[in-house]
Every structure is written in structure tokens, then in C-alpha cells.
Nucleic acid binder design. Structure first.
Length: 449
RNA sequence: GGCCCUAUCGUCUAACGGUUAGGACAUUAGCUUCUCAAGCUGGCAAUUCGGGUUCGAUUCCCGAUAGGGUCACCA
């Protein structure tokens, strides 16, 4: 066995979409491997014919690719039965395993013949790079089954054989595999093969501190992708779940992660998955994305009612990108905002009740009308190309100051948006343009008189 | 229940055996042009408990407690 090269693997079973925990394990393997110029292997563990599905394999591969965790080599256990058979026969021939006739547990009453390992019933001790020595008494394991028959290996046998054949140097996997390790070591010893290095990383936990399982809400990478998380944000967040650089730095590119990652800094205890923090990371990444890319993503998440309205056009959407950008954490928030009615008014005259034009303590709509008329006057005097937020503000500020900011600003903003909450009136006016702004102001006045 | 792993703010975490126990998210107050968002400034908030070892334990050891994982003819 060549020892010099670092070789790692992840071994997902295609019984579900790529799980967030598997993705994080893949990431740690990937970072460690790339840092050491090693090889990262993906091995699809599909020995269970009943539960393995091609669609899940496709999903796993697809999402790993989306995350940027490319593998150097892909294997499928279902294509390697001949190899396992050789090892099972060896074990049988050397008396380290035996055939056992017994009643099927799966199918009551059916007689079958399984392959069991002869357990030497000894204490097994192994070193875990992040946990130190771990000791087990394997007696309680009994003569466990390693294959359903000579052609159908079970998990433990297949894993041991593959890790050996593929020359895996470091097995970096979830903590839930600690208890599997002694079994696998027993098989290695029966086979007389070398032991790889073990690294058991902490689990990702749900809010109630239990292992994230498929039945929990959002556990597949696909779901996060669909909701509009950015892959780099997901990577960054997952890297910091259970690992830290030892400094206060939190934002990392994948290359920085490869550079700074270290197994020694991996945490021992499980980490709760915190969607709020992930959202924060996602915002940070959205900030860095180019206008074009943002535009594309926002448009994709716009509901049909907006896209299909006659007033819709890309120009306006482009203008409100900064406004939207500040209000979303993930792309699907665009849809949420739209559904709450906070986007319509950029495209068409909003409907609203006249009383809404009144600022808090004010009660006289006639004064509102008078003020709006005055504002229209100001606006008329601004040339089209100077109709910008800053300019508008400069021109009406003194007047607003004199009449009371709320009394002036609120009606403008409300006349333009028809909403109690919106961006400020200057921004709105700029987006809408001189003509539309003035038109909406006139509309408001007409409603009053 | 057996075996195994783990234990710092609500959450993710930092701290050669000596720090006012630090940062981030969340939260909270204030500021910033009316409302919102963003931004800025400040606040609240933790070493599970009990024994040791030590001049001195978040840190080392033991125990308790709590949480988690695992106990297949799944992986």
C-alpha cells in the first residue's frame, strides 16, 4: 500500500437527496485533501439494492458539483461485487469467517445462509485524530454478519475492502460512525490489512440537539438551493460549523478555507444548525454578487402577476435592485416581498384610501393637497436628467423642514407607494421618474378634492 | 438499558494554567432625513455541579449530572 499520498473519500448511500451533514463531511474531506494535494474520492455505497435509487445518486452528484466539491474519482459499490467476493472467499478459506444457516430476519420462516465473521472477542483500541484514544470491547458485537451471501457484501465488509483497495489514508466521517469503527477494525485484522487514520467529526444537530435526519425540515442541499441560498455562503457556513480558524475571521473563500483549514481545530461537540446565521452569510455573499447576476436571480424569483402585468419592464426592475438587495437574505425572499405587495407600486399606480395620506397627528387633507401641489411645483422645475434622489431631497428639504417633515414627506411617499412602509420618497421618486411621480401626486390631490 | 462520545453567552465559537472570559449571529437601546430596509454606536448575555492537583484552574485528573451517538440479514 502506497502511503505517501493523502487520499480521502465520502461514502454516501443513495437513499435520499444529498444531506447537509454529508455535504459538510464532504467539505471537510475536500479541504483537507486539497490542502495536501491529495485525491478526493466519492464512493456511492449502493450495496442495498432495495433502498438505493439512481435518482438519489444523481442528486448527490449534482449538488456536490453545485457546491464546487469536485471529486477526483467516482466509484459505485454495486459495480465491485467481484472484488468483495474475493475477500469474502479469503476470509472463509482462512477460517476467519463462516457460513451460517439460519432463519431470515427479514422474511419470517425463510431459511438463508449468511456470512459471519469469527469475532476474536478482544479489546480494540484506535486513535482518532480529534478525539484521541478510543477503546472498545468487541465481545458484545458477537459474530456479526458481514455479507448476506458470497455475492452480497454488507456495509462493513464493503467499506473495509474499498478503503483498502482505494488506498484511503484518512477516513473523515461523522461521529455516528465511531461505534462502527471497531467492527471495521476487526475485519481489517481478519484480512490482515492496514488501518487508515480516523477522524470523526461532530454531528450537525437540530434545534432540539438531536442528529439531523431526513424527516427534519430542511436537510437536503437541494432545498437550500431551491430557496435561493448561494453555494459559497453554504460552504462558508458549513465550514464554520464545527471548525474555526482560531481567529475572528468568518468570511472565507473556498481557497482561503483550503489554506487555513486544520483538523486540529475541529470541534468535538455537535453543532446546532442555525438558519439565522446562514442567512447572514448569504446576505454577505449576495452583497458581493454582480448587478447582472443579481438582476437575473431577482427576476427569476418574481411572481407571475408582476412579470405579466402590462406595466412591467426590466428597466424599472434594474433600478430597484439596490432597494431589493437590502431587503433580502435569500433569493426567494423576493417572492415573499412581492407577495406582501411591496413591489407592485414600482410598476403601476397603487390603490389606497385617501386617509392614508395623513401623517400621524395630522387631520386636514386639504393641507395635504396644498403641500402636494407645492411639491409638484418643485418637481416641475427639476429637469428630467437631474431628477435624482439627492437632487430632489435638496430641493424640497427646506420646505419639508418648515411645514414639518412628517406632514410633507409622508404624503409624498404614500402617494407614490400606497403603503405604510416603503423606501423613502426621494428614492421612490427617482425610480418612478419625473413624469410618473408627478402623475401620482396629481392623483392623490384629485382624490382629496 | 449496554457501550461510546461530548460539555464556555440563546446559537456558532476564541482564550501557552494567570484575560475586565474575546468575536460573530440573534436580541435590545440609541443615532442616522416621515414609515421601512440597510448602516453606525452602545447594552444584555456563558465557563453544568462536586472533589482533587496547583501559589493560581474555562484550561489538567476523578466523580456526578446533562446532552448526543450507536446497538440490522441499512448505510
Amino acid at each position: 500500500m502506497k502511503k505517501s499520498q493523502i487520499k480521502t473519500r465520502i461514502a454516501p448511500s443513495p437513499t435520499g437527496d444529498l444531506h447537509i451533514g454529508t455535504a459538510r463531511t464532504a467539505l471537510f474531506n475536500y479541504l483537507f485533501t486539497k490542502q495536501n494535494n491529495g485525491k478526493f474520492i466519492v464512493r456511492i455505497e449502493d450495496t442495498d439494492k432495495e433502498r438505493s435509487k439512481k435518482e438519489f445518486e444523481d442528486n448527490i452528484l449534482e449538488e456536490l458539483k453545485w457546491l464546487g466539491l469536485d471529486n477526483d474519482k467516482l466509484y459505485r459499490q454495486s459495480e465491485r461485487t467481484d472484488i468483495y467476493k474475493k475477500y469474502i472467499e479469503k476470509l472463509l478459506k482462512e477460517g476467519r469467517a463462516y457460513l451460517s444457516k439460519e432463519e431470515s430476519k427479514a422474511k419470517m420462516g425463510k431459511q438463508i445462509e449468511v456470512v459471519r465473521l469469527k469475532n476474536p472477542n478482544k479489546k480494540v483500541e484506535f486513535d482518532d485524530i480529534i478525539r484521541g484514544k478510543i477503546e472498545f470491547d468487541t465481545t458484545e458485537l458477537g459474530n456479526f454478519v458481514i455479507a448476506k451471501n458470497i455475492n452480497e457484501p454488507l456495509y462493513h465488509l464493503a467499506v473495509v475492502v474499498d478503503d483498502y483497495e482505494m488506498e484511503i489514508s484518512h477516513i473523515i466521517r461523522g461521529e455516528d460512525h465511531i461505534s462502527n469503527t471497531p467492527r471495521q477494525i476487526l475485519i481489517q485484522e481478519a484480512l490482515g490489512i492496514d488501518r487508515p487514520k480516523y477522524v470523526h467529526i461532530p454531528l450537525i444537530l437540530t434545534q432540539n440537539r438531536s442528529k439531523m435526519s431526513k424527516r427534519d425540515n430542511a436537510t437536503s442541499i437541494s432545498e437550500y438551493r431551491r430557496k435561493g441560498y448561494v453555494s459559497d455562503a453554504l460552504i462558508n457556513y458549513m465550514a464554520l460549523l464545527g471548525w474555526n480558524p482560531g481567529t475572528n475571521k468568518e468570511l472565507f473563500t473556498i481557497n482561503e478555507l483550503i489554506e487555513e483549514f486544520s483538523i486540529e481545530n475541529i470541534q468535538k461537540g455537535g453543532a446546532i444548525f442555525d438558519i439565522e446565521k446562514l442567512n447572514w452569510f448569504n446576505r454577505e455573499y449576495i452583497k458581493k454578487i454582480s448587478e447582472d447576476e443579481i438582476f437575473k436571480n431577482i427576476k427569476q424569483n418574481l411572481p407571475k402577476d408582476i412579470l405579466n402585468m402590462s406595466e412591467y419592464n426590466d428597466k424599472i426592475l434594474k433600478k430597484i435592485i439596490p432597494i431589493i438587495k437590502d431587503r433580502i437574505s435569500i433569493w426567494s425572499d423576493v417572492l415573499k416581498i412581492a407577495e406582501e405587495g411591496d413591489l407592485d407600486y414600482y410598476f403601476k399606480q397603487p390603490k389606497y384610501k385617501t386617509e392614508g395620506l395623513l401623517w400621524k397627528t395630522d387631520s386636514d387633507l386639504n393641507i395635504v393637497a396644498k403641500n402636494l401641489l407645492k411639491i409638484i411645483n418643485f418637481f416641475e422645475n427639476i429637469s428630467n436628467d437631474k431628477f435624482s434622489s439627492d437632487e430632489i431631497k435638496k430641493i424640497i428639504w427646506d420646505f419639508a423642514e418648515k411645514e414639518g417633515r412628517g406632514s410633507v414627506l409622508w404624503p409624498i411617499r404614500y402617494a407614490l407607494s400606497g403603503r405604510n412602509k416603503s423606501p423613502d420618497p426621494f428614492q421612490l421618486a427617482e425610480v418612478l421618474g419625473k413624469k410618473e411621480t408627478i402623475s401620482r401626486l396629481h392623483n392623490a390631490i384629485n382624490k382629496i378634492v
